[in-house]
Structures are given as structure tokens and as C-alpha cells.
Simulated scan of single mutants.
Amino acid sequence: MTQLFEVATPDTALLRGVTESAHSPLRAQNNVVRLQGISRRFGHTQALRDVSLTLQKGEILGLIGRSGAGKSTLIRCLNGLEQPDSGVIEIEGRNITGLSEKQLQAVRSRVGMVFQHFNLLSAKTVAQNVALPLKIAGMDKAQRQQRVAELLELVGLADKAQHYPAALSGGQKQRVGIARALAASPALLLCDEATSALDPETTRSILALLKSLNQKLGITILLITHEMEVIKSVAHRVAVIDGGEIIEHGPVWQVFADPQSAVTRTLLRGLLPQLPDNLAARLSQQKQGEVIYCVHAAGDDAQGDLLTRFAAALPGKFRLLQGGVEHIQHYAVVRFFIALPASNIADEQQILSWLHTQQAQVERVGYVASHD
């Protein structure tokens, strides 16, 4: 079992927002979305269980979870396609739970939707696809044309207005989808696996576009995905959903630095330094050979090149096995693995003491029988 030696971080509940005061007057004014105690069951399946979240004006929240975790049900509740069994959903302060289909139409005009597979009409041009929600809303032709031109310029497709979807690349189709979702100037943009059907390079360009739109328009974005790399690229906060429950929630940099749940650690596995496979396969909890530690630090505690200072302070006391520094949301996130002789208790205590003074977290992950 992993043993935790230090958890010397600022107040976790405050930083992670788990107990955020969503009901304070100032925060309430800024809330574009407030979910309180949302539950939804389909037969014997509990799709959502007591979900509470807020999205403030101008922020990007990443909602991440594996297939079947509840992401799709949550987004369908947000756009009114599903009604929760219990709880409250507010969009810009208006409770949408229990509204009729006619009443929901006004709410949906404030919510734009970007789909995984674009959902463009193949028989209509790019301009016609983007204009469709404006036409349905009753906007006159001249205004529609002006708005469509503005939107296509915004997403970098001004020269594709008269093309049909079949002539576009996947990334271009998604840009059309984003332009259409922005047509009615919504307060909230829901992106449902918006990059899952795209190659890595195109994904980066779409994420850069979403980030730019967030900054230029101040639009609030809920980004639903199963890819932690997507969250890392653009989101301000992340909520991890599993089994219909929010199991972890907080600023992206801090969740990356110190994931609390096994699910989050699994989702992060490809993005954070890991113990080399040859050592991981030989790990034991029986004291022998070398003891292996994992060291975490983030934010101010990770500044000033922690690893370099560590090596300078304690030369020859340990072996560096794996590690690195990430910069997420302007915060440094450090994670590295070290090994030292299990028999040298004095050096072990000196190392732990020094790391403690640096406000680092240290996990003893096990022992290996011999020097590799």
C-alpha cells in the first residue's frame, strides 16, 4: 500500500472548489450555470447522482470521465433534452427544471452546442448551415448574411462560405459547427467530445480556437471529453465524473499536481511521469534493496527548479529514476521518482526532512530488490 509521508499544501477544499460558496451574492451574479443535487436514473441504472457544479461567466470547465460515466446524460440535462429526477439546473439564474418545451426554446437560444461528429446538413452550404439557427429565430436575411460573414471570419473560414460540407476537412467542419453554435450569441457553449473525431494536429487548432473565442467573447465553455490532454490545453477548472458522481473537482494545475482519486490518476497516466515499467514490475512492500519515492510539488512550492536544488542540497544521496516539470495555467507542476538504499536510514530521514521544508509531498511507493 502506498504510504503518504507529507501533504503540505494549502487548504485543499478551498483550492479545489469542492466547498465553493456558490450561493454568495457575488458568485451567484457571475454564475452562468448552477447545478445543485442533480440525479437521474434510467431503470436500474443511476446515470447521475447528486451532481453539483457551477460555471462562472467567462470560464472554461472541463468535464472528464470514461465512457458511461454520465457525461452525456449531464449535457442532455443542461440543454433540456433530459429532465433530472431531482435537483435544480439554473442557466443565467433561471431554473430550467420542469419547463415546458416551448419555455425551453428561449433558454436554448442562450446555449450553443458543438458536436463530436459536426452534425452539418450536407445539402446546405457552409453559410446556410451557420445561418440556420438565425433563420429559425426569425432574423431577416440581410442581418443573417452579415452575422454569418462575421462568424465565418471569426473561425477562419471566410473563404469557405459557399462550399458544401463534403468539400471540407474534419477541422473545417468543426469550425463550421462552432460558428453555427455561436450564431445566436449564446452565454454558454457546450462542447461534447468536440475534438474526439479529429487528428492531433487538428485537435490542437480547434482547442486554440476555443481558447481564443473564450478570451475574445468572454463566453463560458463546458468542455466534455475523455481526454485529459484536452483539459490541460484549455480548461481553467476540471471536474472528474465517474459512476454518475463528481469525484474530483478543482483548478486544472492542482488536480494534475495532486490527483486524489484512482480514476483521475488513471486518466492522467499518459501525461505525468511514471515509474519506469521495469522497476514498477519489481516493486515490493518488503523492505529490501532500494526504497522508491515519488515526489510531488506544485505552484509556488515548485518554483525555482526544485529538482536542481534537491540535487545540490543532497548530492550522491539518491538516484533520479524519472521525472519532469510541467507548466499548467502558469503554475509549475513537478513530479519525480528517486531511489536510495533502504538500509541507509540516516540519508532517508535527511531527504524526507529536506523535502518537507520545501512543502513537497512524498510517497513511498515500495522497494526493489537490487540496484538496476
Score class of each variant (00 low, 15 high):
residue 329 Q to K: 08
residue 100 S to D: 06
residue 314 L to P: 05
residue 54 T to V: 15
residue 261 S to E: 15
residue 59 E to C: 02
residue 78 L to Y: 05
residue 295 V to G: 04
residue 72 S to P: 02
residue 52 S to R: 03
residue 77 C to M: 01
residue 22 A to R: 15
residue 233 S to Q: 15
residue 274 Q to H: 07
residue 148 V to D: 10
residue 108 R to Y: 10
residue 323 G to D: 04
residue 107 V to K: 06
residue 314 L to I: 10
residue 125 T to R: 14
residue 33 V to P: 01
residue 241 I to T: 00
residue 12 T to F: 06
residue 13 A to I: 02
residue 355 L to M: 06
residue 294 C to K: 13
residue 69 A to H: 08
residue 196 S to H: 12
residue 6 E to P: 00
residue 290 E to R: 11
residue 91 I to A: 06
residue 350 Q to W: 00
residue 355 L to N: 08
residue 55 L to F: 15
residue 61 L to I: 11
residue 270 G to S: 14
residue 114 V to M: 12
residue 217 L to D: 04
residue 249 H to Q: 11
residue 167 A to Q: 14
residue 341 P to L: 06
residue 323 G to M: 06
residue 198 L to C: 03
residue 33 V to C: 11
residue 69 A to K: 09
residue 260 Q to H: 04
residue 284 S to W: 12
residue 119 N to V: 12
residue 364 R to W: 07
residue 226 H to I: 08
residue 168 L to H: 02
residue 327 H to Q: 15
residue 57 K to F: 00
residue 106 A to S: 13
residue 338 I to A: 10
residue 286 Q to A: 12
residue 300 D to P: 05
residue 245 E to G: 05
residue 350 Q to T: 14
residue 175 R to E: 01
residue 105 Q to C: 09
residue 226 H to W: 07
residue 210 L to W: 13
residue 34 R to V: 14
residue 117 H to V: 00
residue 45 T to D: 08
residue 294 C to Y: 04
residue 25 P to R: 06
residue 122 S to L: 02
residue 277 D to M: 01
residue 315 P to A: 00
residue 190 L to I: 09
residue 146 Q to P: 03
residue 302 A to F: 03
residue 70 G to S: 06
residue 293 Y to Q: 00
residue 243 G to C: 01
residue 196 S to F: 10
residue 131 A to T: 03
residue 35 L to I: 00
residue 305 D to P: 05
residue 121 L to P: 07
residue 109 S to T: 02
residue 201 E to S: 01
residue 118 F to V: 02
residue 218 G to Q: 05
residue 20 E to M: 09
residue 195 T to D: 09
residue 155 V to G: 09
residue 137 A to S: 10
residue 236 H to N: 11
residue 199 D to L: 06
residue 173 K to G: 07
residue 355 L to C: 09
residue 24 S to D: 15
residue 11 D to R: 06
residue 128 Q to A: 14
residue 316 G to Q: 04
residue 137 A to W: 09
residue 223 L to G: 01
residue 242 D to S: 15
residue 32 V to F: 10
residue 345 I to P: 00
residue 146 Q to N: 11
residue 336 F to W: 05
residue 97 T to Q: 13
residue 292 I to K: 00
residue 174 Q to N: 11
residue 130 V to S: 11
residue 68 G to T: 09
residue 202 T to F: 02
residue 342 A to R: 04
residue 203 T to G: 02
residue 341 P to Y: 10
residue 4 L to K: 04
residue 200 P to E: 13
residue 362 V to L: 15
residue 370 S to H: 14
residue 290 E to C: 13
residue 270 G to I: 12
residue 232 K to A: 03
residue 140 D to K: 03
residue 135 K to L: 15
residue 236 H to W: 05
residue 9 T to F: 14
residue 41 R to L: 02
residue 141 K to W: 04
residue 164 Y to T: 07
residue 278 N to M: 11
residue 15 L to G: 02
residue 162 Q to F: 08
residue 173 K to D: 06
residue 178 I to R: 01
residue 29 Q to K: 15
residue 60 I to Q: 03
residue 7 V to I: 08
residue 42 F to P: 01
residue 147 R to W: 13
residue 101 E to C: 00
residue 267 L to Q: 07
residue 275 L to R: 13
residue 193 E to D: 11
residue 128 Q to T: 09
residue 308 T to G: 05
residue 124 K to S: 10
residue 184 A to W: 04
